[in-house]
């Protein structure tokens, strides 16, 4: 009887974590599509690292460890980091990649300084930084799932409201500007949505691996379709799939952390998509090439035969 109740309890925890990971996966997958299409795949990496000082400052200012306050601090810092990247690229000749690398690493370093400052006051537990770096999917509670659902849902609804404008921004920025769309404002809106997805995901997979949650589902989805609508939908599905399967795999084996497992599952989905997706996939390409070669050969044989018959 007792065994049964632990089993049910375990399954309940697993279910909550699974739902949380699925929600996170779908939100970051859908929004990551835009980052990948705009060739800003690594923006997520920068935002997630740049969030660390925000968390530390939020803690230093309020002295509380309420997730919502820390998440707000993370979001503000991540957002400021992105604005800094944008202005460095706009105002200097430093290219996007260097601007990203500088903001990512130095914001993180500053966060580390603040973190050691907090540690010295003896006010924080050592585990804080590890959680930030690698996430702790196992600690997702029903309350967190609600937060993820509400905030992620809002981000997705905003994405749908500005669907047309964002689509134009992604595919033809010049045209969007010429018909009078506020490009900078849309850019900032899209970044803010990404920041929401990233900050929510930090708890599950952590800062180091967050970029994969944005990039992998979108890259996988890209292989299956040329339509944005379908790509966003597929990326959300792949993200959810990776979240759920990663959670289940890491729970069935001992000492396998959830975050990295989710990332590896997403990577497997990408690998399968690159190999087997119709039209674009590598296997499909190979088959098509061979068919072409075969077609060419029969055509050449036919021509040869014809010319032989004519000469006879």
């Amino acid at each position: 009887m007792e065994n049964l109740s632990t089993l049910i309890h375990l399954d309940y925890t697993l279910m909550i974590v699974g739902i949380g990971a699925a929600l996170l996966g779908s939100v970051s997958g859908a929004l990551g599509t835009y980052a990948v299409l705009r060739r800003q795949s690594l923006l997520g990496d920068a935002i997630s690292h740049a969030a660390l000082p925000g968390i530390a400052i939020a803690f230093l200012l309020t002295g509380s460890k309420t997730p919502l306050i820390l998440v707000l601090g993370a979001a503000i810092a991540g957002w400021l980091g992105t604005l800094l990247i944008m202005s460095i690229v706009r105002l200097t000749r430093i290219k996007y990649d260097s601007a990203l690398a500088i903001v990512l690493s130095t914001f993180f370093g500053f966060g580390l300084v603040l973190h050691t400052l907090i540690q010295r006051t003896g006010n924080a537990n050592q585990a804080g930084l590890d959680t930030f770096l690698f996430g702790q999917a196992a600690t997702i509670l029903a309350r967190d799932v609600l937060t993820i659902g509400i905030l992620g849902g809002i981000a997705l609804i905003v994405m749908l409201i500005f669907w047309k404008e964002l689509k134009l921004l992604v595919f033809d920025e010049g045209f969007a500007a010429s018909i009078g769309l506020p490009i900078r404002a849309l850019d900032i809106l899209l970044t803010s949505l990404l920041v929401i997805a990233i900050v929510l995901g930090l708890q599950a997979v952590g800062a180091v691996l967050m970029s994969a949650m944005l990039v992998a589902p979108a890259v996988a989805a890209r292989q299956w379709t040329n339509r944005l609508r379908l790509m966003v939908f597929l990326a959300a599905c792949f993200g959810a799939l990776a979240g759920v399967s990663g959670t289940i795999i890491s729970s069935t084996m001992s000492r396998i952390p959830t975050g990295p497992t989710i990332v590896l599952c997403a990577t497997v989905v990408v690998g399968l998509s690159i190999a087997f997706a119709p039209n674009r996939g590598l296997v499909w390409n190979r088959i098509r090439q061979q068919r072409h070669r075969h077609g060419l050969k029969t055509a050449a044989d036919g021509l040869l035969k014809q010319s032989q018959q004519r000469s006879e």
Binding site: S41, L42, L209, S211, L214, V215, L264, T267
Partner: peptide, 18 residues
């Protein structure tokens, strides 16, 4: 099938996870 930035963003998290 994959652009450079996405290729980087796919590769290192996977290796790091391993």
């Amino acid at each position: 099938l994959v652009k450079e930035d996405a290729a980087i963003g796919l590769t290192f998290p996977a290796l790091f996870s391993i």
